[in-house]
């Protein structure tokens, strides 16, 4: 059991190193994508800068709170795309029969599919996310470990959500755009202050579109250091991960080969 785990960890490390090498091979393009994505995120913040500059606070949320929320969401998403970037390409792999070469590999198919890609722009998300968290003023030496844990949990929650959304392709054809739009909706919700949404919508944000687990709860944990919130966050994320793996495995049973000829490795 332990040997198996160690083997899988070694495999993950090798996969990560390979995809990082691939994404940084064209250094100029990598730096350009990363810088522009960071600028892109900074530009988005002009909206909050203008709005909160006029009204000061929105239902108790100040600029620092929005920066922290945005930072956690961007860092979690960036980390996911940088290390497990294949998650947002699952539907394309499924549609085009791209899982065929992975199925005959001795390692877990899902892990392979997730880890075989990395996005250059994701590093821009990651760094700008960390930058926004630092700017918020909520980070100190005492809270740094908690913040790191929250970013990691956000990363896992994003991974689980992407696996679930992009596995829709097992059930229907050409669902990539739909899955992408669902992910965009989730990201949109995760970037706006939680108190804006009340009633049944808040329930949706902690269940069907779990923006609560990618940004609201992690931000709350960083700010208040509440143990109950942290436990709730970790339990919820673990549940979504378990569900995502189950959905993928159930879909894999329905998967039909693309009979595609190609070279893999």
């Amino acid at each position: 059991m332990l040997k198996n785990l160690a083997n899988t960890a070694r495999f993950c490390w090798a996969l990560l190193r390979t995809s990082l090498k691939a994404v940084t091979a064209l250094r100029g393009s990598f730096l350009l994508s990363m810088t522009f994505m960071a600028l892109n995120n900074a530009t988005f913040f002009v909206f909050w800068w203008v709005l909160l500059g006029r009204v000061g606070t929105l239902r108790g949320w100040y600029m620092a709170d929005v920066q922290l929320l945005f930072g956690i969401s961007a860092a979690g998403f960036g980390l996911m795309q940088a290390t497990l970037g294949g998650a947002v390409h699952l539907s394309t792999l499924i549609d085009e029969g791209g899982l065929d070469p992975l199925l005959c590999q001795p390692k877990p198919t899902l892990l392979y599919a997730l880890g075989c890609r990395s996005q250059a722009s994701a590093f821009g998300d990651l760094f700008s996310g960390v930058g926004f968290m630092l700017l918020s003023g909520y980070l100190s030496w005492h809270s740094a470990a908690r913040a790191l844990l929250c970013v990691l949990v956000s990363f896992l929650a994003y991974t689980a959500i992407c696996i679930s959304f992009f596995s829709l392709a097992f059930g229907a054809k050409k669902t990539h755009s739909l899955s992408r739009q669902l992910l965009d909706i989730l990201i949109t919700f995760s970037l706006y202050p939680e108190p804006l949404f009340g009633g049944p919508l808040r329930l949706v944000l902690f269940t069907l579109l779990p923006a609560g687990f990618v940004s609201y709860l992690p931000a709350r944990v960083v700010k208040s250091a509440s143990t109950s919130d942290l436990l709730c966050l970790m339990a919820g994320t673990a549940f979504y991960l378990w569900l995502a793996v189950r959905i993928f495995q159930a879909g894999l049973r329905r998967y039909a080969s693309g009979s595609r000829f190609g070279v893999f490795g």
Partner: peptide, 8 residues
């Protein structure tokens, strides 16, 4: 799918 996704 794309059209309905956009609408949503």
């Amino acid at each position: 799918a794309e059209l309905y996704g956009r609408a949503l």
